[in-house]
Amino acid sequence: MNKTALASQESTGKGRRQSVAYARGNLLTAKSKAPIIRAVDVYKTYQKGRLKVPVLRGVDFQVEQGEFSAIIGQSGSGKSTLLHLLGTLDVPDQGEVFFGEERIDNLKAIKRDRIRNQEVGMIFQFYHLLPELTTLENVLTPKMISTGAFRYLLNRRQYIERARMLLELVGLGHRLNHKPRELSGGEMQRTAIARALISDPTLLLADEPTGNLDSQTGKDIMDLLQRLNRDEGVTIVMVTHDNEIASQADSVVRLVEGRVQKSRNQAA
């Protein structure tokens, strides 16, 4: 996606969406339709003792490159579960998941690990930062995972520079050496966002990034995500149960009883 072209677009909500649609339209003519992530008829059932809990019952879902998509649904409707399937954190009982053209749900664990590390950025509902590490180190963790000790030490300055830059971006330039327990919820969430961005992912999966935050902080986070989507061209899939927030996305998918109930507000 042409970032400079995107960046030059005016930044008001509606105009932007139109421009995205326009850009996507160009893309469509250039290639055939290019979904970056796609779930085809996926099923997921959890076993609770002898009781089977069907969570996803034939979900079809896809997001195109550069799109900001929202998944809404009641608590317990399986939003997080779906996101985990998309992010290769879990495998569906049935159905297929594609990343670009590649089927990823049946890949070897080591390849899935690599996709999770390099291609997909995950922001969790409950931040999930490592309590022993500082903000900066937490942001650097995916880099530490992907590079060996020697190469890491060699390129340390560069990585730290990038982590610092990302923390500046999320407005945490002054909290580099704080441990997670010394941070507020919003700060932790923003650290998690910086961490999700460190490997330059093409896809960002955000599980209720604003769920535990007050409305002002939530708005800040949303602004950040939108800026990322617009300026950096990052495809975003965001789970939320807040209709207001969902309405800021390009497309909204509603999960009801383990199935998708589509409502594209793009059409509006």
Partner: peptide
Amino acid sequence: TKDIGILKALGAPSRG
């Protein structure tokens, strides 16, 4: 356990 889950979620392989 949770930290291990985080590491794995961030792409750390089981061997690691």
